[in-house]
């Protein structure tokens, strides 16, 4: 019986510890994982190498992304990130309405064909709320 009570006490202690860490967890408990030079984070990041290697092994050299016909595209393209660069080169392209725009095909050393005629719309994405 005394052995059982000891285990019970240990159970209660362990479950109380687990419960309190569960409650605290979401708050700031694991925010240290966000700092890029944290040692624990570096260990967790090793899984990325595993993911990469396994995926490249499965994908092989010849697999391509699935292609969709034009009729399956239901809407315009919306870019991520900067939508209105301020470089001279880009401004000149805007001025000519992208008439001279060309995608470079570096693999074969030559210029590729007209690549992108999609509209550019402003993307009002959610603002990041990093702690200040």
């Amino acid at each position: 019986m005394s052995r059982l009570q000891l285990t019970r006490r240990r159970f209660l202690g362990a479950s109380a510890a687990t419960a309190s860490s569960l409650v605290l967890a979401g708050c700031e408990q694991f925010d240290f994982l966000g700092s890029r030079d944290n040692e624990v984070r570096n260990v967790l990041e090793m899984a990325n190498t595993l993911t990469y290697k396994v995926q490249r092994g499965l994908i092989g050299q010849q697999s391509l992304a699935r292609e969709y016909s034009a009729s399956e595209i239901r809407q315009g393209q919306r870019p991520n990130g900067s939508t209105d660069p301020t470089t001279e080169e880009y401004k000149a392209l805007v001025a000519s309405n992208f008439a001279d725009y060309q995608a470079q095909d570096y693999r074969h050393g030559g210029a590729g064909g007209q690549f992108f005629a999609g509209r550019i719309t402003q993307y009002a994405g959610a603002k990041p709320d990093y702690p200040s």
Binding site: G26, G34, P131
Partner: peptide, 14 residues
């Protein structure tokens, strides 16, 4: 969420 602030990259690592 882990981390509590918005950080997609860390979320993916975890």
């Amino acid at each position: 969420t882990i981390p509590s602030f918005q950080d997609l990259a860390t979320g993916r690592v975890v």
